[in-house]
Amino acid sequence: MSRIAPRLRRRLSVPLAATAAAILALVPQTATAYPNPGHVTGDIAVHDPTMIRDAAGRYLLASTGQGLQLRTSVDRIAFARAGDAFAVKPAWWSGYSSVPEAWAPDLTYRDGRYVMYYSVSSFGSQNSAIGLATSTTGQPGTWTDRGIVLSSGSGDDYNAIDPNLFVDDDGSWWLSFGSWWSGIKLVRLDPATGRRHASDTAVRALAARPDRQGIEAPSLVKRNGVYFLFASYDRCCAGTSSTYKIKVGRATRITGPYLDRAGVPMTDGGGTLVLESHGRVVGPGGQSVLKDSDGHLLVYHYYDGQDAGRAKLGVNLLGWSGGWPSAY
């Protein structure tokens, strides 16, 4: 790619005397230490954003609501609404929601093909399903739905929403997912079909809250041979009353165990804070992580406490001081 994406404008709430090295090494101890989102403009009213960059350098962002809305950007700053992924919404959605929209999409661009996993459900329901769609261009109306990959109901201990595809260095495909109930799960996929692996059908536990409180929106990242699991904790979607926050754990294997900085397993409620409410930024979460030309990006939504609690797009670069991610 010939064009390098510009770095985000950053405003950090730390003393002016702090050096650049100290900023990068900072592990926030209070909410005032967290950075504000980088500068973005245009159509940025989103929930559960996922963003990729294709071979031409174009950014494509998908989010929850009104079918599956797509936005594009050429500079990672100005975003414009492109339209709905589907020309016609899949008929099977009606079995999981009375509202013709999908939630929490996950985009991947690989080998010249766009792949999107997404979920269909209704708020607070365990009657949920994860679908798969593909496109050769990524343009609105060009996506072909491939049907249901995974579903959940009252007999399951998990909720089949918030999918995230991770392709490992050996070419294996893994899908993490989950919301509330018993937490975040992981299944293996067949790269040839994008569906469940025929000989590995295990549903593995990655993270959970022993008190059954909120944990959802997994995002898996591998860096220097170490796996990192990002997840959103607590309550989303309540405007300025939202308590969402982003935490992370790390592991030496894709299947875990994922431990936080203090060594507490994420299956026991552990998780090291990456970003939480601060200033006008309320309830950041619903995140995804994109590796771009200038580093890893944390892409999320938050509620603007100084703009009637409207949901907006947040983008921050991640630093990795000490082997742990922090937003800056």
Rank of each mutant, 00 (worst) to 15 (best):
V281Q: 08
P210T: 12
T134P: 00
T137Y: 14
I184P: 05
M116E: 05
G322Q: 04
S326A: 09
S98E: 11
V40Y: 09
A18K: 14
Q139W: 12
G194R: 04
D169Y: 08
R113C: 07
A104I: 13
T193G: 06
W173E: 01
K185G: 08
A91V: 13
R113G: 03
R9E: 06
Q69W: 05
G283R: 01
T240G: 04
N316S: 04
L220K: 09
S219I: 01
R196H: 04
A62E: 00
D145A: 13
G178Y: 06
G147T: 00
T32S: 14
P140N: 08
A208P: 05
K247V: 07
A5S: 08
L60I: 15
N224V: 12
G65R: 05
W324R: 07
A202R: 12
L150S: 05
A82S: 12
Q287A: 00
V46L: 00
D234K: 02
G309I: 06
I161P: 02
V88K: 13
A231C: 06
S94P: 03
L26E: 07
L298V: 02
G141K: 13
Y328A: 06
A17T: 03
V120Q: 10
G314H: 03
N224I: 08
T137C: 10
T137L: 05
D234W: 15
G194N: 04
R10M: 07
A85G: 07
D84A: 09
A231Q: 02
Y244L: 00
W320C: 04
L298R: 10
P105F: 10
Y34P: 03
L290W: 09
G285Y: 08
L24P: 01
A87C: 06
M1F: 15
W174T: 01
A308K: 12
A55R: 13
G239L: 12
R53Q: 11
W103F: 14
T108Q: 08
S119W: 00
L313Q: 05
D54G: 03
D169C: 04
I161S: 03
W92D: 03
R196M: 14
R71N: 08
M116V: 14
R113M: 11
Y227N: 05
D170W: 10
H197T: 02
F166W: 07
C237S: 02
D48I: 12
A91E: 12
V14R: 15
D111A: 13
N159P: 06
D170R: 11
A160L: 08
R250K: 14
A20K: 14
M51R: 01
V203F: 09
V27G: 04
R53N: 04
Y303E: 00
K291V: 08
A129W: 15
D190W: 10
L150Y: 15
G319E: 13
A217Y: 01
V120D: 07
A231N: 08
P28W: 02
A217H: 00
V40H: 03
D156I: 08
L317Q: 11
R223D: 07
R223H: 15
G305V: 00
V221M: 00
D234T: 07
G314Q: 03
V203R: 14
V299P: 03
S121Y: 03
S98I: 06
F123T: 12
M116T: 11
D304H: 01
L16G: 06
D48H: 08
G141L: 04
S182I: 09
T64R: 10
G138Q: 02
G153N: 11
T41A: 11
E101T: 09
L229N: 02
R81K: 15
A327S: 10
I44P: 00
I23M: 12
L70E: 05
E101G: 02
M116N: 11
